[in-house]
């Protein structure tokens, strides 16, 4: 008797998709993985909204209102939510704007940049508003696990997921957490 497949959802918030690329770096383990899981919302499936899932993988921090909605949707649907990579855990590169005042930051980009004249900060309701600071995801929702790295290597992600799928508490050994 085969066990029912686990459902996994993934997304990138204020990230660069580097962690997703690293996820693809598990290479031939992808074949093992698709035997064990099926994908819900993810750039791999192009499903737009997340349904009930077992595992949610979040890349990137929270920089705008849309990120908050997506993150909450994941939290509400995923039994286990995992912060993947430096931006999800600490805010990472996007959080470098945190020591600047948001207004000054936006005006610099949209009004004062060389070659721009008469520009203004976009105010289309379609565009999500920026939060005044970029936050790690655990400051906005409850997070169950963290996979560090920029990005975490393919073997790290595979070790973590295979532990989780097998029901073991994930343990990253020293070589998988050693970055220099």
């Amino acid at each position: 008797m085969t066990r029912p497949k686990l459902r996994i959802a993934t997304t990138s918030l204020a990230g660069c998709f580097g962690c997703h690329m690293s996820f693809l770096d598990i290479d031939e383990h992808l074949f093992e993985l698709v035997e064990l899981v099926e994908f819900d919302r993810s750039p791999l499936t192009d499903i737009k909204h997340c349904g009930p899932c077992d595992i949610g993988l979040i890349e990137g921090g929270v920089c705008n209102a849309e990120n908050v909605h997506v993150l909450r949707e994941f939290r509400n649907n995923c039994k286990t939510l995992i912060a993947v990579g430096a931006c999800a855990i600490n805010g990472g590169l996007p959080a470098q704007r945190n020591h600047l005042e948001l207004g000054a930051c936006l005006r610099e980009v949209y009004e004062f940049r060389d070659g721009l004249s008469g520009g203004q900060v976009p105010n289309d309701p379609e565009l999500p508003l920026l939060l005044d600071k970029v936050h790690p995801i655990h400051e906005v929702v409850r997070v169950d696990y963290f996979i560090p790295g920029c990005p975490p290597s393919g073997p790290t992600i595979w070790k973590f997921l295979s532990d989780l799928i097998a029901g073991r508490t994930p343990r990253l050994t020293h070589s998988l957490m050693h970055f220099d």
């Binding site: 209102a65 948001l102 105010n123 508003l129 005044d132 600071k133 929702v141």
Partner: peptide
């Protein structure tokens, strides 16, 4: 779970700059 800060207040600066006050803001 409850964030340690007020998420809606964190949008206040962006609301002021863009002049928006719609539901999505």
């Amino acid at each position: 779970f409850e964030p340690a800060f007020d998420l809606d207040a964190a949008l206040a600066t962006a609301r002021r700059i863009t002049g928006r006050d719609d539901a999505a803001a």
